[in-house]
């Protein structure tokens, strides 16, 4: 049994890993669909990030609690069942309390089910670790995902409309780059962002 201090340190490390070292989008290249699809503006990106945190959190808890009872060959089925249930709940929640946002995100909310991040964490972490570690892992990964989404969305929204979080930032003379709001902008911004991250990590290994 490790002392309380070292346990806290390892929790902090797990959490931080999700944000930088094992950032799901920038390092593991998981969950690309929502990353590209909902990052035209910060608001939907943030909503998406929070929904993913919720689903990841709940599914990690359930999977971690069941980990000793799981039959190996029925494992994936169990994961999908859990995930799709929580995604449905998240979808209903958005429809009931944030109808405008739910319409903007459209089919990308149910598509969280096939977001590789969640099933990957269930398989790689929650089905092997204790409840506490799984929860911290879910929060770290979720935070990393949300942060990346917001950065990407911030860049795109700024260039596409001159606003961030619907607040005017650019001077009036700025001509919006409409292409940044379209699929092209998503692909190229993410490509360059990945390049930038590669550049930073190569300098300080």
């Amino acid at each position: 049994m490790p002392s309380n201090d070292s346990a806290n340190v390892s929790f902090a490390r797990t959490f931080a890993a999700g944000i930088w070292n094992e950032n799901p989008v920038l390092r593991l290249l998981l969950g690309m669909c929502p990353t590209l699809a909902v990052t035209a503006a910060v608001k939907p990106a943030l909503t998406m990030g929070l929904s993913v945190i919720f689903v990841l959190f709940c599914s990690n808890i359930v999977v971690s609690l069941m980990r000793n009872m799981l039959k190996p060959h029925l494992r994936i089925l169990m994961f999908t069942l859990t995930i799709s249930t929580f995604v449905t709940i998240a979808d209903l929640f958005l429809k009931a309390f944030a109808p405008v946002m739910s319409e903007t995100l459209g089919p990308y909310v149910p598509l969280i089910i096939v977001n590789c991040i969640i099933i990957c964490r269930a398989e790689a972490c929650a089905s092997k670790n204790t409840l506490a570690v799984s929860i911290v892992d879910a929060l770290g990964m979720g935070a990393g995902f949300t942060l990346t989404l917001c950065v990407l969305a911030g860049i795109r929204e700024l260039l596409a409309t001159g606003k961030v979080f619907e607040i005017q930032v650019m001077p009036g003379a700025f001509v919006p780059w409409a292409a940044m709001g379209m699929p092209v902008g998503a692909f190229i911004t993410l490509g360059l962002l990945l390049g930038a991250v590669n550049l930073i990590t190569r300098k300080n290994p």
Binding site: M182, V184, A186, F187, G191, L192, R202
Partner: peptide
């Protein structure tokens, strides 16, 4: 290709240009 863009980044950028074509 510049070293830091090798692999996924350049693929994404290429995909972006392809998207432009499909637009």
């Amino acid at each position: 290709v510049p070293v830091c863009l090798k692999g996924a980044p350049i693929t994404l950028i290429t995909a972006g240009i392809l998207t432009l074509a499909f637009m």
